[in-house]
Design a protein around this nucleic acid. Structure first.
Lengths: 113, 113
DNA sequence: AAAAGCGATTACGTTTTGCGTAATGGATAC
DNA sequence: GTATCCATTACGCAAAACGTAATCGCTTTT
């Protein structure tokens, strides 16, 4: 497993999720489209990761989805951000800012002995 | 499982890891201390999560560790950031900046049909 | 009209992570 | 000498991630 894949898995995975929530806030998000979008950002996610993820985020109540059930079992499913999802996104953004501030300081508040 | 725990698991977990790398860059990091530090930041990680994590980051070559082997099998293990770890941290910081920029724009470049 | 391609999701089996709790063990304090 | 603290290890279960392959309906090609 190469370094890039490791970074993806360990850390950037969480970034995708933020990405997804953010996009879902702007308009409907479709799995297939998201797969491409993430690749444009240099990430590399496989369907086996993304689709269960979307379902889970919906189960958490952060996304809701709809589908033209007319169009067979493989019709595209559109995901939208819920109110709860919005709160999550806001909270995460705050935490993100805090993290960045933290990264800029060299001060260590609680040094180990 | 409450919402906060979900957010932790889904997204903030990656933030901790960045936190860890960052602290390891400033000086030695000890598991126990990190557990407290993370709690100060409102996170809630259990030993069963943290210690394997530290080991894994070491296995990835991002951290190295040392221990006063004199002091028994449970002596505190000090983790430091390696050169490779530094690169990872830099890369992640860039990605972090990109993410924040992305979050500020409402423009959707590749709209789904 | 049969075949090939495309957009999109589902299914599946394996490996890796995450989690909480309990066990361990040395050092210090009382 | 035993109770407490610091710190790690052990363990067993549940969840998540991964890649690949299968599926399904629609559209284009020949």
């Amino acid at each position: 497993m190469d370094t890039n894949a490791l970074i993806n898995k360990e850390i950037l995975l969480g970034f995708w999720k933020i990405h997804i929530l953010h996009h879902a806030a702007e308009g409907p998000v479709v799995g297939q489209w998201m797969l491409q979008e993430l690749q444009h950002h240099g990430y590399n996610v496989s369907p086996g990761t993304l689709y269960p993820l979307l379902k889970r985020l919906e189960k958490h109540g952060w996304l809701r989805s709809e589908v033209d059930s007319e169009r067979g079992p493989k019709a595209p499913r559109r995901y939208y951000l819920t109110a709860a999802g919005h709160e999550v996104l806001d909270l995460v953004e705050r935490q993100l800012g805090e993290l960045q501030r933290e990264l800029q300081t060299q001060v260590r508040k609680f040094p180990p002995k």
